[in-house]
């Protein structure tokens, strides 16, 4: 479904992605983790070309995203993206946030889009908030709406860029639950997160990235029990005892 072939990216002198090779199969849930500044967010943003790449290839659903001939807008419509800071459109109500792109990009008629939006809101447990505005919702609620917004385009892949790291601790659970349900429905997902509980429970595979390189990838069982690479061991230690 997604394939990275020797992908490089530089920000001026900084080599943020240094030869990434990675495959994500259809229906697979891959969690990407790594220390801050490791390049994991940049990597996930290259999949739908919110960040461009300098070298290599990225194939999504059989299309080379870095090829100038690829219709990026059409590609992005098939790839859902959930941001750390939700990025809901503050000037639109919850339901309009969800229906805007189906109506404008896919040409769906408004009644059908509204119906679909309500169904999606039910799925994330927020049907009663459909006429609220983003600023009237809690962070967790906003992120659930953002997921519903991504799903409204009926994507083939969902990407999550640290979806819970801007949330108060008591709201993380409600978002992870929605993500878990989504994974169980068979959605292909790539998730950048530090929520190791989620990784353990839901992921098919954990990818550890450091200094722009994938240094380790393994099923969650193996990764958490017996990390091979020294940096991964260190990372897990710090994550589990954050006070030290």
């Amino acid at each position: 479904m997604i394939r990275f072939n020797n992908v490089h990216k530089w920000f001026k002198d900084l080599h943020v992605l240094n030869g990434i090779d990675l495959q994500v199969a259809q229906g697979e849930v891959v969690v990407v983790c790594g220390p801050s500044g490791s390049g994991k967010s940049t990597m996930i943003r290259t999949v739908n070309q919110l960040e461009s790449i300098n070298e290599g290839e990225i194939w999504v659903d059989g299309k080379n995203v870095a090829d100038p001939k690829t219709d990026l807008n059409a590609l992005r419509a098939e790839v859902g993206f959930v941001f750390q800071h939700f990025n809901l459109y503050p000037h639109l109500s919850v339901v309009d946030n969800i229906t805007l792109s189906p109506i404008k990009v896919k040409g769906m008629d408004k009644a059908a889009a509204d119906k679909q939006a309500v169904a999606l809101l039910e799925r994330v447990g927020l049907a009663h908030k459909k006429d609220a505005f983003p600023a009237q919702l809690s962070g967790g609620q906003q992120q659930r709406v953002a997921i519903a917004r991504g799903l409204a385009m009926e994507p083939r892949v969902m990407l999550f860029d640290e979806p819970t790291s801007a949330l108060d601790p008591e709201m993380i659970g409600e978002v992870l639950k929605v993500m878990k349900d989504l994974a169980e429905s068979g959605m292909t997902m790539m998730v950048v997160t530090h929520e190791m509980g989620f990784a353990r429970e839901v992921a098919d595979r954990v990818v550890f990235i450091d200094h722009g390189k994938i240094v380790e990838q393994a099923p969650p069982e193996a990764f958490f029990k017996n990390p091979q690479h020294e940096r991964a061991q260190q990372f897990l230690r710090q994550l589990l005892t954050p006070m030290s």
């Binding site: 919110l50 807008n73 992005r76 993206f81 990025n87 990009v105 385009m153």
Partner: peptide, 9 residues
């Protein structure tokens, strides 16, 4: 970014 990500031109 959010707008581009859903396929808007």
């Amino acid at each position: 970014a959010a707008a581009l990500a859903v396929g808007f031109s």
